[in-house]
Simulated scan of single mutants.
Amino acid sequence: MSESENKDLLEALNSVKPVKIGDVVKGEVLALDDSKQVIVGIEGTGVEGVVPARELSIKAEELEEQVKVGDVIDLVVISKIGSDKEGGSFLLSQRRLEARKVWDEIEQKFEAGENITAPVTQVVKGGLVVDAGVRGFIPASMVSDHFVEDLSQFKGQTLELKIVEIEPSENRLILSHKEVAHAEREAKRQEIMSDLAAGDVLEGKVARLTNFGAFVDLGGVDGLVHVSEISYERVGKPSDVLKVGQDVKVKVLSVDPERDRISLSIKQTLPQPWDNINEKVAEGDIVEGTVKRLTSFGAFVEVFPGVEGLVHISQISHKHIATPNEVLTSGESVKAKVLNVDGENHRLALSIKALQEKPAADSKETSHKPSKNTSNDFPDEETGFTLGDIIGQDLKK
Rank of each mutant, 00 (worst) to 15 (best):
N278R: 14
A198S: 14
F304W: 10
A181K: 02
S15T: 14
E288F: 04
N6T: 11
D217Y: 14
L91Q: 02
L196R: 11
T210D: 06
V250R: 13
L218K: 02
A360K: 09
E5L: 13
F385S: 01
P52C: 10
H146F: 15
V72F: 13
Q37L: 03
S176A: 09
K335G: 01
V67M: 08
L350M: 07
I391A: 13
E3A: 08
S79D: 15
L32E: 06
L161S: 02
E65R: 13
R135G: 03
W103Y: 09
L196I: 14
E61D: 12
E167L: 05
K337W: 05
I230D: 00
V143A: 08
L270C: 03
I106T: 05
T121R: 10
R293V: 15
I313E: 08
A198V: 10
L395F: 15
K243C: 00
L56F: 12
V76R: 06
L348H: 07
V19D: 06
H368G: 05
A207N: 11
G388P: 00
I42G: 00
L9T: 08
Q315I: 02
Q315E: 15
E165C: 00
W103I: 04
I262D: 06
E184L: 12
V225H: 03
T329K: 06
S144Q: 05
N211E: 14
A354I: 12
V25K: 01
G223M: 13
F300I: 08
L175R: 00
I116L: 03
I391H: 06
S317Y: 06
M142I: 00
G27F: 01
V148A: 11
E326Q: 15
